[in-house]
Design a protein around this nucleic acid. Structure first.
Length: 486
DNA sequence: TCTCATT
C-alpha cells in the first residue's frame, strides 16, 4: 500500500468518512503495533508515576521526528511535543517529553542533561522535569551583585550550608562572561528562605557596586511583565519603522502578551502592560487600517482583547485647532502658554510634513487622519474599528480628570501619549510639550479624561510604569486655584 | 541584576 487513505490502514475500518482519532494516529505513520485481532494499536500507556521532562536548547530546525531517535534509546516514548508559538508556529527551541516509564526519564536526564550540545547551540541540552512537575518556583533564588569572576562552584560553596542545592547557574552573556548574577535552586522553600536571611546584604564582593543580593527569583508573571517592559523600552513597538514591516509579527506578539497580562491580574486595575499592549494594538490597527495593509479584519469579531473601539463621532473637526491651525511656526518669539499647546500637533495642514520633524514624517499615516478628514472617512469604512481619537484641541477635563505625565520617552508625541492612556477611558486631549527652538519633546505632557475615574485608573496603572530606562510619573494636574498649603 | 525556551 503506497497511499494511505482514510479508513484503509489496517482493513478494520472501511469507507471514507469519519475516522476515529486513534485511526488517524495510525495514518500519521507512528510505529504502533497491531493486535493479532486487527484492532487498532493500543494507545501507549505510561506509568502512573511517569515524569514529564522539559527539553531545552534544541536547535530550531529539529522537530519531533528528528528528536525521537535521540531519546528513544532510554526507553519507550509516551509523548514528545516540540513547543511552538501559538500564533506564528515558530519552534520555540524546547520540548516536552514523557516516557512511558519513570525510569526512562531518570536515565535520560542523567545521560543527557547538560551533557551534550546539539549542533548549532552554544549551550548544552537541558533535560529535567518540567515546571509542571515540580510545583512552584518558590525554591529558586536570584543572586545579584556577584563578582563576575565567580563560578558556579564558588556560588555553590557560598550557598550549600543552607540546604541542598538542586541547581546553580551563573547568568552569562552570549560571550560566556558572567553577568554578575545567578540562580540557585534549593530543594525546599525553607532552605531558600534561610539562605536569604543569612546572605542577603551580608557582604560585598570585590568589584561589585553594592552588597550581595539574595532574593526569590521572579515568578513567571513577574518575568512576563519584565519582558514586556523591556520590549516596550527597546524601540520595537515605538519605532515607527518597525510598524511598517512585520506588522503581523508585532501584532501577534502584543496580542499574546496582552492575553498573558490579562491573566496576571492586578487587583481590578488594568495592568500597565496590558494597557500598554492594548494601546499599541490600537496603534497598529490604525497603521494597518490603511487600505492594502494585511491586518484588516473581515468581521467585527476580531477585536483584540482589551480594546474598546473608539468612536468616530467623538472626533472634533480637525480644521480649527484652537484657532491656531493656520499659524505659521515661529510667529512669536515667546508664545503664551496656550500657544505652546497647539504647537507641534497636527501642525499646519497646508504644509506637507517636512524634514524638520522626523517624528511627524514617521507618523504621517496617522496624522493624515487629522489633516484629511476625507481620507479618514474612507479608512473608517474599511476598518470596522476606527482608529483612535486624534487630539484636535487642547481641552481640559473637569477637576480630577487632568494628568501630568513626566519622564516620557523622547520620541513620544501627542499621539503616542494618547495611545498610552486610551485604555483607561475617553481621552479628550493629550499634549506633549515641545521645545519651540528645537522641536524636541520636553518629555512631559498632559492627558485629560472626561471623568475622574479614568484618571485615577490611569494613575494607578501608569504611574511608575517603566519604559526603557525611565519610569513614568503620572499624577493629577494641580487645579489652577488650588489652595497651596505653603 | 531575573536565564533560553515551560504546552
Amino acid at each position: 500500500m503506497t497511499t494511505l487513505t482514510n479508513g484503509q490502514v489496517d482493513g478494520t475500518v472501511h469507507g471514507v468518512g469519519l475516522v476515529s482519532a486513534s485511526t488517524n494516529g495510525l495514518v500519521n505513520g507512528l510505529s504502533h503495533s497491531h493486535s493479532p485481532l486487527g484492532c487498532p494499536a493500543t494507545i501507549p500507556m505510561k506509568d502512573h508515576d511517569a515524569i514529564k521532562l522539559f527539553i531545552g536548547q534544541i536547535p530550531r530546525n529539529l522537530d519531533e521526528k528528528d528528536l525521537r531517535p535521540l531519546f528513544e534509546e532510554f526507553g519507550k516514548i509516551y509523548e514528545l511535543t516540540v513547543l511552538k508559538d501559538r500564533f506564528t508556529g515558530m519552534h520555540k527551541g524546547c520540548a516536552f517529553l514523557t516516557y512511558c516509564a519513570r525510569e526512562s526519564a531518570l536515565k535520560a536526564q542523567n545521560a543527557l542533561h547538560e551533557q551534550k550540545t546539539l549542533p548549532g547551540m552554544n549551550r548544552p541540552i537541558q533535560v529535567k522535569p518540567a515546571d509542571s512537575e515540580s510545583r512552584g518556583e518558590d525554591r529558586k533564588l536570584f543572586v545579584g551583585m556577584l563578582n563576575k569572576q565567580q563560578s558556579e562552584d564558588d556560588v555553590r560553596r557560598l550557598f550549600e550550608s543552607f540546604g541542598s542545592i538542586e541547581e546553580c547557574t551563573i547568568l552569562r552573556g552570549p560571550d560566556g562572561n558572567s553577568k554578575g548574577c545567578a540562580f540557585v535552586k534549593y530543594s525546599s522553600h525553607a532552605e531558600a528562605q534561610a539562605a536569604i536571611s543569612a546572605l542577603h546584604g551580608s557582604q560585598t564582593m570585590p568589584g561589585a557596586s553594592s552588597s550581595l543580593v539574595v532574593k526569590f527569583a521572579d515568578t513567571d508573571k513577574e518575568r512576563t511583565i519584565r519582558r514586556m517592559q523591556q520590549m516596550a523600552g527597546q524601540m520595537g513597538i515605538f519605532n515607527p519603522m518597525a510598524l511598517q514591516f512585520g506588522a503581523y509579527g508585532a501584532y501577534a506578539q502584543v496580542q499574546q502578551q496582552a492575553a498573558l497580562m490579562a491573566s496576571v491580574g492586578q487587583g481590578g486595575y488594568l495592568s500597565p502592560m496590558a494597557a500598554f499592549a492594548a494601546a499599541q494594538m490600537q496603534h497598529m490597527a490604525t497603521i494597518n487600517g490603511i487600505p492594502g495593509a494585511p491586518l484588516t479584519p473581515t468581521s467585527g469579531g476580531s477585536t483584540p482583547p482589551g480594546i474598546g473601539a473608539p468612536t468616530v463621532t467623538s472626533i472634533p473637526s480637525p480644521i480649527s485647532v484652537n484657532g491656531f491651525t493656520g499659524m505659521p511656526p515661529q510667529a512669536n518669539g515667546q508664545p503664551p502658554a496656550e500657544a505652546v499647546f497647539t504647537n507641534g500637533i497636527h501642525h499646519y495642514p497646508a504644509q506637507s510634513p517636512t524634514a524638520a520633524d522626523p517624528l511627524q514624517q514617521a507618523y504621517t499615516g496617522v496624522q493624515q487622519y487629522a489633516a484629511y478628514p476625507a481620507a479618514y472617512g474612507q479608512i473608517s469604512q474599511a476598518f470596522p474599528h476606527p482608529p483612535p481619537i486624534i487630539p484636535q484641541q487642547q481641552r481640559e477635563g473637569p477637576e480630577g480628570c487632568n494628568l501630568f505625565i513626566y519622564h516620557l520617552p523622547q520620541e513620544f508625541g501627542d499621539g503616542e501619549l494618547m495611545q498610552m492612556f486610551l485604555p483607561f477611558g475617553n481621552v479628550i486631549s493629550s499634549k506633549v510639550f515641545v521645545d519651540r527652538a528645537t522641536n524636541q519633546s520636553k518629555c512631559f505632557g498632559f492627558v485629560s479624561f472626561d471623568n475622574p475615574g479614568s484618571a485615577q485608573a490611569a494613575i494607578q496603572s501608569m504611574n511608575g510604569f517603566q519604559i526603557g530606562m525611565k519610569r513614568l510619573k503620572v499624577q493629577l494636574k494641580r487645579p489652577k486655584d488650588a489652595n497651596r498649603p505653603y
